[in-house]
């Protein structure tokens, strides 16, 4: 099972690095989703390892949450995108101290 956990860790790291380095809001967002799915993978792998279903059930809920997040995120990014005609995170810079 270890290899699945390692894979999930790698995916998680990729997502994490992606969030930190990418500038396009949609891509950042996709990286976040990647992180969630990496967690799902880890959950399922651990569920198999421990021989109970908790992890799999969690994966279901995570999917739901991820979906809700997609819906909300897409709405927010779309509004910004329509206003600015740009989805770059750097362009969103009105809020500064």
């Amino acid at each position: 099972m270890t290899q699945y956990v390692v894979l999930s860790a790698i995916l998680f790291t990729i997502g994490c690095v992606g969030v930190l380095t990418r500038r396009n809001a949609i891509v950042v967002f996709m990286c976040v989703e990647l992180m969630l799915n990496a967690s799902n993978l880890a959950f399922v792998a651990f569920a198999k390892q421990h021989g109970n279903l908790d992890g799999q059930i969690t994966a279901f809920f995570v999917m739901v949450v991820a979906a809700a997040e997609v819906v909300i995120g897409l709405a927010i990014i779309m509004t910004i995108f329509r206003t600015r005609r740009s989805a770059s995170v750097d362009d969103a810079s009105l809020l500064k101290y």
Binding site: V64, A67, V70, V71, A75
Partner: peptide, 23 residues
Amino acid sequence: PVKYFITAMLFIVFDIEIIFLYP
């Protein structure tokens, strides 16, 4: 067109519902 996004969002909502309905 924004409409497509709305459809996509709706799809996600219902797809999730289906996820729970199957098991």
